[in-house]
Amino acid sequence: MTAPVPNRLDPRVPEPLTGAELAAALGRLPHWRAVDGHLVASFTVLRADVPVLYAAVAAAEDMTDHHARVTILYDTVTFALTTHDAGDRITVRDTAAAAVLGCLAAQCGAAPTP
């Protein structure tokens, strides 16, 4: 399945970040990296706190109408972000969401994984 073609006539759809913009954003987002076209970070958290972290993340995603792919494996929570409306490319929506997710993870006692 191919990614949707971005609608450049819709001002609500942000442009994909350029390489320089992505590099600058990654400089402001500790523990996040670009992997296969996604903005990705993993955190370890006490297993008992995984539901608390996920509930906080889900609430933030619903408020912004921007959702990460969330993978939970034991005590590791991994987030992957792209903007579907921009052809599954990384945009300012993703960097803003990454900043929020990183703060939520820290508030829940999660530690970034290498």
Rank of each mutant, 00 (worst) to 15 (best):
P4A: 12
G109F: 02
A110P: 02
I90G: 06
Q107N: 04
A25Q: 07
A106Q: 10
D36T: 11
A68K: 06
T71P: 00
Q107L: 08
L46D: 15
A34V: 11
T71G: 11
V40N: 11
A111P: 08
D94K: 04
V92T: 15
H84Q: 13
V92G: 14
H84I: 15
V70S: 03
V77N: 00
D85T: 06
L26W: 08
A86Q: 00
P30A: 00
L9C: 07
G27P: 01
P14L: 03
I72K: 01
A23L: 12
G87E: 11
G109V: 06
P112G: 03
L9N: 14
A55E: 13
R69P: 03
Y54H: 12
V70N: 07
A20K: 10
R47I: 14
R69D: 12
A110V: 06
R47Y: 10
R89L: 12
I72F: 04
V57L: 04
V100H: 06
D94I: 03
E21L: 05
Q107P: 00
P6A: 09
P112W: 00
E61L: 01
A106F: 02
L81Q: 02
G37D: 01
D49T: 14
D10N: 15
P30K: 01
H31I: 08
P11I: 06
T91D: 02
V5M: 15
R8V: 08
D94S: 08
A20S: 13
A111I: 05
P14N: 14
D10V: 12
L101W: 01
T44K: 15
T82M: 05
R33E: 04
E15W: 08
P30Y: 00
H31K: 07
A3S: 13
A56F: 01
D94V: 03
D10W: 12
Q107T: 07
A56E: 05
A48Q: 12
F43D: 01
V5I: 13
H67N: 07
D65C: 08
F43T: 00
A24I: 03
V100M: 15
M63G: 09
G109K: 06
P51E: 01
T76K: 11
A80I: 04
R47M: 14
T91H: 07
D36K: 09
A80C: 04
G102D: 00
T83N: 08
A48S: 09
R12W: 04
L46I: 07
F79K: 00
A23Q: 10
P14A: 10
H84V: 13
A96R: 11
E61S: 05
A110S: 08
A34R: 14
R89H: 12
L29Q: 02
H38Y: 15
L46F: 11
A3V: 10
P30C: 07
I72C: 05
H38C: 14
V52N: 05
A34H: 13
L29F: 09
P51R: 05
L81Y: 02
H31N: 15
G27R: 10
R47G: 09
D75G: 09
I72Y: 01
A96F: 02
D88R: 13
D36N: 14
T76H: 05
